[in-house]
Design a protein around this nucleic acid. Structure first.
Length: 437
RNA sequence: UCCGCAGUAGCUCAAUGGCAGAGCAUCCGGCUGUUAACCGGAGGGUUGUAAGUUCGAGUCUUACCUGCGGAGCCA
């Protein structure tokens, strides 16, 4: 008797099969039992008729609690009454472990309770669907970059100093005599590998010790950062468009079932094809100020600042597609950003604001090439020169225009799924006040 | 760090300052097609912690703890 997975059942209609999994839920009706089996690929309803099975088997199945581990043998039959279209006429059951008192019941639960039981919550349909979408987002990211000539060059997680010097870092004791920090970006190292390989990317966990408590924040998240030698701001914007569009396409193609479970409006994802609107910062400020005059925004936005969450939401609400805002004031961007040749106070940076109010999903731009400029910037930002000496070498030996961006996997996944909070898009979220499980 | 909201049965939530309640889950019983099944019964409580006001506090006051939402900051 072949062992099959639930997502292959349609290929085995009429056959006797073996399924190995866990009891998802069970309904009973007199001499009938409807155990629902979950095996990691899906859920299938099984049917047990009392008179068709031995008495002891009937009794043992009847008493099984939610999430009991079981192996079921039976015939696959197409049936309209069954959720999923197929059901199993059970002829044999092996109880691997009978379970009593599984904490997560089919009814409603609060966030705190579910997060405390995250290790079990992952088994539920919705969480399963979200993490399958994440899996596809990650594969789409890798496939896109690999097929586009990028080389994976991962950057260190333990680093000697801040990459950008601004945000808060997690500090680690490094054998007593030195301090190390968990990486908040692979950016600077990417510039080194880009000079070696041309087009590179790093993809790994990133750590930000910000005391942020919003639906868009995690203290540990995954970020993919492509970097290209001999590239400009325009190249970054072109790449961003194709990148997001290819991810959305893959999710639509491979995760239709999951998007249905999540009740995602897929029309919104179908819109994610180039070109995306491009808006200079100056024009964005005008839009925000006009919005304030019309009473659509509480506070008047002044030129020179970085956008707050309400500003981002307002701007992106004016477009159906993601909005690329570029040419920010240099003062609000990182020290390594290149300046506009026309206006020295503007940085060649771009933020991609996701549609539907999902906020900044990509941030990037063109990097400064001049040694003298960067030496000055390090001083202005009060950064330790010694720690950046290797980085300055990149400007001494074959410095060329280069550019890249970073995209947060969890923000992207939350957007694709159409869910409220990034905490559900990573198996074990790390947040302010949440380190367990 | 700041602002707001919340904490009562395993879970989700009720309860004018006056007897601690319901649904689900669990256990027992019924039902041959259930779809979050349904019907009947049973068990289940230091009302987040500490102090205070009061004849009397789940309810009012103060502090603390925990969580949620938001701001700043960011991907």
């Amino acid at each position: 008797m072949p062992q099959v997975y639930i997502n292959q059942l349609s290929q085995h209609a009429g056959e006797e099969v073996t399924l190995k999994g866990w009891l998802y839920n069970m309904r009973a009706s007199g001499k009938l039992l409807f155990p629902q089996l979950r095996d990691g690929t899906g859920v299938v309803q099984c049917v047990v008729f009392k008179k068709n099975v031995p008495e002891e088997m009937w009794e043992s199945v009847k008493s099984l609690g939610q999430e009991s581990a079981i192996v079921i043998r039976g015939a696959v039959r197409a049936d309209e009454r069954a959720p999923g279209g197929y059901e199993i006429d059970v002829s044999g059951v092996e109880v691997v472990q009978a379970v009593e008192g599984y904490p997560i019941t089919p009814k409603e639960h609060g966030t705190e309770f579910l997060m405390d039981h995250r290790h079990l919550w992952l088994r539920s349909r919705r969480q399963h669907a979200i993490l399958k979408v994440r899996h596809t987002v990650v594969r789409a990211v890798r496939d896109f970059l690999d097929n586009d000539g990028f080389t994976l060059c991962d950057t260190p997680i333990l680093t000697p100093a801040a990459c950008e010097g601004t945000t808060t870092l997690f500090e680690v004791d490094y054998f007593g005599d030195e301090k190390a920090y968990l990486s908040q970006s692979g950016q600077l190292y990417n510039e080194a590998t880009a000079a070696a390989f041309g087009k590179v990317y790093c993809f790994g966990p990133t750590f930000r010790a910000e005391r942020s408590k919003t639906r868009r924040h995690l203290t540990e998240f995954w970020m993919v950062e492509p970097e290209m030698a001999y590239a400009t701001l325009d190249d970054v914007m072109n790449l961003s468009e194709r990148f997001i569009s290819s991810i959305a396409g893959r999710v639509l193609e491979e995760r239709g079932e999951e998007l249905k479970v999540l009740e995602r409006d897929t029309a919104k994802l179908e819109l994610l094809v180039p070109p995306f609107p491009r808006l200079p910062y100056d024009d964005a400020v005008k839009m925000l100020q006009e919005g304030h005059e019309r009473g659509e925004l509480e506070t008047r936005f002044e030129w020179g600042g970085d956008f707050g969450a309400p500003d981002e939401t307002y701007l992106s609400s004016k477009y159906e597609r993601p909005l690329m805002v570029h040419h920010y004031p240099a003062a609000v961007k990182a020290f390594y950003m290149a300046r506009s040749p026309e206006r020295d106070d503007l940085a060649l940076g771009v933020d991609v604001l996701a549609s539907e109010g999902y906020g900044e999903v990509i941030g990037g731009g063109e990097r400064a090439t001049s040694l003298a400029f960067l030496e000055e910037q390090l001083k202005l930002h009060d950064l330790p020169r010694e720690a950046f000496e290797w980085y300055l070498d990149l400007r001494r030996y074959g410095s060329v225009p280069h550019a890249g961006f970073g995209m947060g996997i969890e923000r992207c996944t939350a957007w694709m799924c159409g869910i409220e909070h990034v905490r559900e898009t990573i198996p074990f979220p790390r947040m302010l006040y949440r380190l367990r499980p």
